[in-house]
Design a protein around this nucleic acid. Structure first.
Lengths: 256, 256
DNA sequence: CGTACTATTGAGCGCTCTCAAAACCAGTGG
DNA sequence: CCACTGGTTTTGAGAGCGCTCAATAGTACG
């Protein structure tokens, strides 16, 4: 599984300093820039580290909600089961992203989460985190921000599923992945998909064959190069056009 | 606009006591069961009441984020603009529901909100609410719950758009509306749609003609009666089957 | 080299969209 | 009272996107 593809060049998880001080995952990292007292309380009482292999689950549907999970390396698939029993992929999570929020409302996980590759996961005890938040406005603000981001993410996804064609969805998916990799210091042009065509299709509301065909078409149009799970984006702009995004980097929609 | 249809039998807004103490909208109401000191601070410093007419907006895309909005009576449509400039309906809000959460992440409204009929709205100053939360764990918990509900709502919607047929979507929509009306003390069988076919279609990712055709089909099948905006649900169970919900009220999926 | 899994490619069909016209409804003004 | 207008909804016809079914190909692994 671990070939020497670009996005895979991460230090082996055993070698990583697992305290939060060493966590570089910017915005989502709760501990960043906290005073040392608070930081060490967080690290000791709230956080815990864990390595999971491909296919192992972090939590399962129906499990009682205890923790949130932050991906430190690797990637995770979150899915729910719909009425007839089949999977519905709700999202893929990359390093620095937080999952498990869906369980807060009812106190029970509505989704399952499995590692798509060997991954390092930071677990956050939610109850304790909430307790700490009471006395720590800064922490509380960060938690708010995490909620808010998740809501914003969901809104974007609703637009995608509600109104866009298969082509737009896939172009969007690739660009979004690319940006997330770039934000994390990986290449924005070249990366590996840790998820199958089936998972991608499921996530985007498409048949896996449609995903495969569209990737082939994008390649014919010389927008990307794709071989199995390895992808290289050749023309971001053109993809953005396909995705239905505003392209002109100057005339971006401006709020206030 | 204000005909004497079942769901319209609400007291005229002027007559309503506008303090939060009088707000009966259960879960979402931040003030419920607070000690009187805190309650009056909330009511005086944080909350404000307002009546809007059909077509008036509560906030617009690009406006800086100051407040959350709770519907007290009437209904509100929330929509964003997609790249080409057309509307994308993100949701319809009934009494007791809270909107504006989408703006928290960036501090700017990503959506616009307009009243679908004359409505009474409770405005919540977000900054002040956050400040009060710092000292008030109970308030903070409620705010968390509000976030969590929104996320859960979005997840359900993602499933709907990603995986379900037009028929399933519309059946789901009707049942969901019905349940929300019922929760608010209105009839679960008979109600008025305050939104157009166009809005419904937009919201569900369908063409307005498809919505119209399906409503006609449901009526042919004697599942509902529909005349313009007035709807009566005749067979909840059968609709639930169409919606793809687990039907057997005993064998409901059980978590823990 | 065989097995299992994943991905590609092809053919045909059906759901839902688009385009178009007609019907319906509420409001306005003669 | 009726005609006119603008908006919404219904209904019809046809086309196309994306699905399903099915066969083939590629890859990993024992």
């Amino acid at each position: 599984m671990s070939q020497s593809y670009p996005a895979d060049v991460i230090p082996p998880v055993e070698a990583v300093d697992c305290t939060c001080s060493a966590c570089s995952m910017a915005l989502n990292c709760l501990c960043k820039n906290l005073d040392t007292g608070l930081k060490s309380r967080l690290e000791n009482e709230v956080l815990r580290n864990r390595v999971v292999n491909r296919g192992q689950s972090l939590f399962e549907i129906g499990e009682s909600f205890q923790r949130l999970y932050a991906v430190r390396s690797g990637s995770v698939k979150v899915y729910s089961l719909i009425d007839n029993g089949e999977e519905q992929v709700m999202g893929f999570y990359l390093p620095g992203e937080l999952l498990g929020l869906e369980a807060i409302d009812r106190g029970v996980h509505e989704c399952s989460a499995v590692a798509l590759e060997t991954s390092s996961i930071c677990e956050v005890k939610f109850k304790k985190l909430e307790q700490l938040c009471v006395a720590q406005p800064i922490l509380q603000q960060r938690l708010h921000r995490i909620y808010a981001r998740e809501i914003a993410r969901d809104y974007a996804m609703l637009q995608l599923l509600g109104r866009k064609s298969a082509e737009q969805r896939l172009a969007n998916f690739l660009l979004h992945l690319s940006r997330r990799f770039a934000d994390r210091g990986y290449s924005a042009e070249e990366f590996n998909l840790s998820m199958s065509r089936h998972d991608i299709g499921n996530y985007l509301g498409l048949a896996l064959e449609t995903v495969s065909r569209l990737l082939a078409r994008f390649q014919d149009q010389e927008l990307i190069e794709v071989k199995r799970r390895h992808v290289r984006l050749l023309k971001h702009q053109a993809l953005a056009v396909l995705a239905g995004e505003p392209v002109n980097p100057v005339a971006r929609r401006h709020y206030h």
